[in-house]
Design a protein around this nucleic acid. Sequence first.
RNA 1: GUGCCCGUAGCUCAGCUGGAUAGAGCGUUGGUUUGCGGUACCAAAGGUCGUAGGUUCAAAUCCUGUCGGGCACACCA
Length: 556
Amino acid sequence: MKDLELAVAQACKDLFQTERAVELTRPDEQFGDYMTNIALHLSKQLNTNPREVAQTIAEHVKGQVADIEEVSVAGPGFINFRLTDSALFKVAQSHPAQSLAGKTVVAEYSDPNPFKVLHAGHLYTTITGDAVAKLLENAGATVHRLNYGGDVGLHVGKTMWAIVQFLGGEHPEKLESVQSASRLEWLSERYVEGNTAYEDSETAKAEIVAVNKRAYELHAGNDHDSPFAQIYWTCRQWSYDGFDAFYEQLHINKFEKYVPESTVTQLGIDMVQKGLSEGVFEQSDGAIVFKGEPHGLHTRVFINSGGLPTYEAKDLGLAASKWQEYHFDLSVIITANDIVEYMKVVLKALEHFYPKVVSRSKHFTHGVIKLPGGVKMSSRKGNILRATDILQAAHEANRAASGQDNQQTVLAAVKYAFLKQRIGGDIIYDPAESVALEGNSGPYLQYAHARARSILAKTDFQDQSQEFDHLEAGERSLLRKIGEYAETVDKAVEELMPHHICTYLYELAQVFNRFYEHNRVLGDPRQELRLHLVSAYANTLEHGLELLNIPAPEHM
RNA sequence: GUGCCCGUAGCUCAGCUGGAUAGAGCGUUGGUUUGCGGUACCAAAGGUCGUAGGUUCAAAUCCUGUCGGGCACACCA
């Protein structure tokens, strides 16, 4: 309702000689379709009664905008506007803004490490990142989905060490005995062994550190032939294949590519060396560190005393390589929130090299997945909750609730359960609640969609132009709610918060169910108009679910 | 100890660029129902928005203190 905003702004100018941007909000339905509190702000400045100001503006605007049926003043000085039915219909037809048209965005999320297990947090980041990327895309941006992961680093040393132990030496040919379906599982078991040995045995620890170093050397020397290298490359591929299968199962958008840490390591090292000579980094106890204290941050090691780059250095390399490849307008990074402080230090160091990259980067963080009862699902050892555990719990809950195991229902349940909450805090995931067909759940929305589709399927409904006038209350409420879709998506894009869409879709479904309960569609004299409403509703719901990458089947 | 994040109904969460009686789901209690998929609808009970101050015409929302919880703070990622 740009017209209305401008008309009100013009009124303020004409009446009070004041230039002010007017923002309309959605009041409670009983008050109207749009509202502005401009009079409350003006009254302060004019030193007059806010209701009088509101009244004056209301009188002035009345009749000036064709789409407005009624202007009223209420409360301390709110001005409420009620649209004509045909204007409401126009609003319902509007599409989300293409606010990012022509922009290039790099979205990095999921980030599982090869040689390690996919845990519950990865599942959450993956689903969230996918939804955020989709939002950006829907707003017109070209999105490059990147998946970064540690194919070098201490965890690789741990796993590789345990693999060699398991194989009884560096015998790549013995890897054939591992079943292809259980490779990811097998690797994560080796990681746990390696990690345990690292903590329990000084001898093993020294060996693991040495293995870790060999993994770096293998990349530096481009070694694909030595037995050790053969084991490494084979197992790294197993990891990526396993991740691919996992993503496929989740029905998310494909990643453009994996960015293994090893490919940005040298770049990162070079940057640190350069920064060292330029005084950005300094030597300290044999390591190269960045002092964060002058910036209110803390000191972090970028290259350790063994000469190996830490995650910090590699992250510098990653940022540089993203920039060199994409020259993005925006870089979104989604991770768990335990690294917020860490990331601030890295970005502060990066500022020295690429200030523009830092200003265009947005680090998004989310919380931890917990079970009902407050049990935390994250831990160092083998008792972590894996991504597959969550999915399995959802399948079991679905089977228990419905007697059948429907992949689409489970996907909707898990995705919606994760997405409906604002990104940031911890999530308490309740499998039973997520698959329930009652309440604020993914399956509820799927059902709400299928139900509307089934009505349409019973007729030869054609989506032709239709005059929306003299709507009854229930019809009008539904149309009004449908009209909020575009602005809801805009808000979600602006904040990069998909949960706004979830909240909206659920409210939309509730409004529809209310309408459906009290208004007959088929066989009613108002059938044609109501079919249009049902169709518009189903399309909106479907589009919203599609934005969240949640399937919206016609039948359930 | 220092820094960052969080604290809204019994439970799980919206609302937080300040605005009209603080919203929803689950659970609880009570209704509707031979009707397009009742997996619904209607209604009730349930909240000093951790707490104490401050700013403001107006504070769950902004500021400060305080209590409680989480995370991070040099060679892991």
